[in-house]
C-alpha cells in the first residue's frame, strides 16, 4: 500500500468500517510511513476539537434573557411599523391632522360666538373628525397585521 491508497481509505480506516484485511494493510503502512502517521494524528486532533465544541455550554443566564425578551415583545408587543407606514402614511396622517386643526381653528374663529356643541355638530367638522378617525383605525390595523406576520 502506498500513501495515496492509504489516504483514499483514511476515513474507513479511522471509522473502523474496512474489511479486516484492508485494515491490516493500513496498519502496516502506518508503521512504516511517518507522513501518514502524522496525518492520522492530525485528524485525531480535529476530532478532539469537535468533542470540545460539543461540550461547550451556553451562558447560564441565557434562558433568563430569552424569557425577558419574550415577555417584552410578546405580552406588550413592540410595534414594528412597516416602511410604507413610516415613510408615507405617518407623514400623511400628520398632515391631515394638522389640516384638520387649521380648518377647525379657522372655522371656530369665524363662529367666534358659537357654543362648542354647535361647532361639533356641524356636518363638515364631523367629516373631518371621521376622516381623522379612519386614518388612526387604518393605522392600527396595519400594525396588527405586521405583528401577526
Amino acid at each position: 500500500m502506498d500513501c495515496s491508497q492509504f489516504k483514499s481509505d483514511l476515513s474507513a480506516f479511522r471509522e473502523g468500517t474496512q474489511p479486516a484485511e484492508m485494515h491490516d494493510l493500513c496498519e502496516q503502512h502506518l508503521s512504516s510511513c511517518r507522513a501518514c502517521s502524522r496525518l492520522v494524528s492530525e485528524f485525531d486532533k480535529v476530532d478532539m476539537l469537535i468533542e470540545q465544541v460539543k461540550a461547550a455550554e451556553p451562558n447560564p443566564f441565557a434562558a433568563t434573557r430569552i424569557l425577558q425578551r419574550l415577555e417584552n415583545e410578546v405580552d406588550t408587543p413592540q410595534k414594528r411599523y412597516p416602511v410604507v407606514w413610516v415613510r408615507v402614511l405617518r407623514p400623511a396622517a400628520i398632515a391631515v391632522a394638522l389640516l384638520c386643526g387649521i380648518l377647525i381653528g379657522s372655522y371656530t374663529a369665524k363662529n367666534d360666538a358659537a357654543p362648542l356643541n354647535q361647532v361639533i355638530n356641524t356636518t363638515g367638522n364631523i367629516d373631518f373628525l371621521r376622516s381623522n378617525l379612519f386614518i388612526s383605525e387604518f393605522a392600527d390595523e396595519d400594525k396588527i397585521l405586521v405583528i401577526n406576520n
Binding site: V53, K54, A56, P58, N59, A62, R65, I66, R69, L70, E73, V74
Partner: peptide
C-alpha cells in the same frame, strides 16, 4: 437551540443573541 445555532454561526455569543430571535 443555542448549541445548534452555535455550531452553525461559530460562536456562543452570537448563538445566544440569535436564540432570542429564534424563540420569538
Amino acid at each position: 437551540v443555542i448549541k445548534t445555532a452555535c455550531y452553525f454561526v461559530g460562536n456562543m455569543e452570537d448563538a445566544e443573541d440569535l436564540s432570542q430571535e429564534i424563540f420569538l
